[in-house]
């Protein structure tokens, strides 16, 4: 079936059943992302938006869209932050993709590395301390992004999370009874308005992963496939397979999960905002924490101690 509008060959089948051609798909995609940004007030006048980039398709897609939007609107700014974990054969490659894209488009890219922060690249940390890569990233990437965004004067921090990522997270938290973590999801996050915590925005929130990949392919943002050698996300992979299996049999499942989640989200946020009480700030790094010394500083100390002994 050719594209309804221009009678040319279609590139993708959307959930509605429509099969747009390349140009119509790109228009549809950008319009829908724009709508998410407007309706959820992800970007407002005078915002300074830091965009977390890895060099992968999701991050280059959101970087490209927000950059073009800022050129058109002229009432907000964007710049990029890349966390280089130090994973040879993986991040060194995607880092080059990010650097090239930023250079070509004249976007300021700020790089922060585990090597500077922890004293060694992730490859070496794993070898010498035995701590798993995903455990280190789970704590470090998030906090390094927040600290970097804050120091660079950002008012928002954008990530490339898509509909599939979010539907997986919602389902995973259900199945593991982690509702407090669920309360921190959504297209714009931060349970409490805390000056130290830069609000996170996810402009690709309603875009399925397949559509993001198609967009990045058509806009020539898609690099060669690469995979982190330490990837240990078997639970998430199981949930992804389950959701994709369901989606094939029952189209619309992912959207339905997100739509029902959006309905209960305000209630969840309210509940946990009341329960979490006063938020402390870590005396070492000023990051928000529920304890005294934050998890990040505890992990940094542990890694440095083990590296010194090795």
């Amino acid at each position: 079936m050719p594209c309804k509008r221009c009678k040319t060959s279609p590139v993708i089948t959307l959930q509605s059943g429509n099969q747009p051609c390349k140009n119509c798909f790109i228009k549809y995609f950008e319009k829908k992302v724009g709508k998410t940004i407007r309706e959820h007030k992800l970007v407002e006048k005078n915002d300074k938006v830091a965009i977390a980039v890895s060099g992968g398709k999701d991050s280059l897609t959101i970087l490209s869209i927000l950059h073009n939007l800022s050129l058109r609107k002229k009432d907000f700014e964007v710049f990029a932050i890349l966390i280089d974990e130090g994973i040879s054969g993986y991040r060194d490659k995607t880092r080059i993709d990010a650097e090239e894209f930023c250079k070509k488009n004249d976007i300021k890219l700020n790089v922060f590395s585990y090597k500077d922060e922890l004293g060694a690249p992730l490859d070496e940390i794993i070898k010498k301390t035995g701590i798993s890569g995903c455990t280190v990233c789970g704590i470090m990437r998030r906090s390094m992004l927040n600290i970097a965004a804050r120091k660079l004067g950002a008012t928002k921090l954008a990530t490339g999370h898509n509909l599939d990522d979010e539907a997986q997270s919602v389902l995973m938290n259900y199945m593991r009874n982690n509702m407090e973590v669920t309360a921190r999801l959504g297209p714009i996050t931060g349970i409490k308005r805390d000056k130290q915590f830069i609000r996170r925005i996810k402009p690709l929130y309603f875009m399925p992963e397949k559509e993001v990949t198609a967009y990045s392919f058509l806009k020539e943002l898609l690099g060669k496939y690469s995979e982190c050698p330490y990837a240990d996300q078997s639970y998430r992979n199981d949930v992804r397979d389950l959701l994709n299996g369901f989606e094939q049999k029952h189209p619309g499942t992912k959207y339905a999960i997100i739509a029902s989640f959006m309905e209960i989200l305000p209630t969840l946020k309210e509940k946990y905002a009341q329960e979490s009480g006063k938020i402390n700030h870590c005396p070492k790094c000023e990051e928000p924490t529920s304890g005294i010394i934050c998890k990040r500083c505890q992990l940094v100390a542990q890694i440095k101690e083990k590296l010194a002994k090795s």
Binding site: V11, I12, Q19, D58, E209, F217, Y225
Partner: peptide, 30 residues
Amino acid sequence: LVIKNNTLVTETEKLNEKDEIKIISVVSGG
């Protein structure tokens, strides 16, 4: 994603013997 002779195509696209097909995973790794 299915790429036929360098062009992105849908599931209904017809194929023939001379086509060159590339299949790209939409899942990112890490």
